[in-house]
């Protein structure tokens, strides 16, 4: 009898322990932590480990080379160029998307039938895959069979080569990405804008502020946290750009659109299958993204404090 009592007590204390909110929280977090551990932390450590080795994808002829792969990066013009292309894409895409998303959100913030319809329409590209969007844009912008060059030609304009032109290719990819993703930014900003108290606008109006002044002096300061979130997530996403480039230009013309991730991929997963070197470039990219994210986060927090 006593034994049974002890076992029941143990069970009770076990459930009591995990029922406490501060302990239960860990249970709720556990699935995410496990997923993060297995799909982010361990591969990250694995990548860092591989970057110190001369190793190919077949794991033959493996040799410890210390920091050689990192040194090689600074002598590899194509790798450095791919980093610059990534930064160029980020500078084109991130501000454009945040601005377009915010303006669209502000314009569609009032709940009317038209606005609700427009929000749904602007969100449609988000549910398409980047690969599909890439194929659609490749066809639309193709100088020989594309609809957009055809229309421009009908108006007597010269037909730009878009994805085939070294200067136009990256801006074209950035425009396509903005079209594809600005629905997400718009939705986040819309939620933030709709949460602003109407009394703030009423006060501003009483003080004689026009719509433009209300937007810059009421709306923007109130949505700074959401704006910061959008800037940071877009920044991280843009620095990892791959799919749309892979589908539309494959890094061309003349590697002018080759992004860092694409370069990592081509080094590691196609001939010459240099997994160690690819890992070193991936590690460098990781550090750059981490520095950029932390800096942008600190800047936005500072701005938020300033505005308030």
């Amino acid at each position: 009898m006593e034994e049974i009592d002890t076992s029941v007590n143990k069970k009770r204390s076990f459930f009591r322990f995990w029922n406490q909110p501060k302990h239960a929280a860990y249970l709720f977090m556990a699935p995410s932590i496990i997923i993060l551990l297995f799909f982010m932390v361990i591969p990250l450590i694995g990548t860092l480990g591989l970057s110190f080795f001369n190793i190919n994808i077949f794991f033959t002829g493996t040799k410890f080379v210390g920091l050689d792969n990192f040194v090689q990066f600074f002598h590899d013009q194509r790798a450095i160029n791919s980093m610059w292309h990534t930064v160029y894409f980020t500078l084109l895409e991130t501000p454009t998307q945040v601005i377009v998303g915010t303006v669209a959100a502000a314009a569609l913030s009032r709940t009317t039938l038209f606005n609700r319809f427009s929000r749904s329409v602007f969100y449609v590209p988000v549910i398409c895959s980047l690969t599909t969007s890439g194929i659609i844009f490749s066809m639309l912008l193709d100088p020989n069979i594309g609809w957009i060059p055809y229309v421009l030609h009908q108006f007597g304009m010269s037909t730009p080569q878009f994805f085939r032109d070294a200067t136009l290719a990256m801006p074209s990819i950035a425009v396509m990405t903005v079209w594809k993703n600005f629905g997400v930014t718009m939705t986040i900003m819309l939620t933030a804008i709709q949460a602003i108290s109407p009394s703030l606008y009423e006060s501003a109006e009483m003080d004689g502020a026009n719509k433009k002044q209300q937007f810059f002096h009421v709306t923007i300061p109130q949505i700074i946290p959401s704006l910061g979130f959008c800037v940071m997530t877009n920044l991280i996403g843009s620095m990892q750009v791959f799919d749309q480039i892979y589908v539309t230009t494959a890094g061309g013309p003349e590697f002018k659109t080759e992004s860092a991730v694409q370069y990592i991929y081509s080094r590691g997963f196609s001939a010459p299958y240099q997994l160690g070197y690819a890992s070193a470039v991936a590690t460098i990219l990781f550090v750059i993204i981490a520095v950029l994210s932390v800096s942008s986060n600190l800047y936005m927090s500072h701005k938020e404090k300033q505005m308030r």
Partner: peptide, 19 residues
């Protein structure tokens, strides 16, 4: 090394080639 490599290779392939 092989285990680490497999994990990293599969993870990187997953990131780059989700589609």
């Amino acid at each position: 090394m092989k285990k680490l490599g497999v994990v990293a290779a599969i993870a990187a392939a997953g990131v780059s080639l989700a589609a």
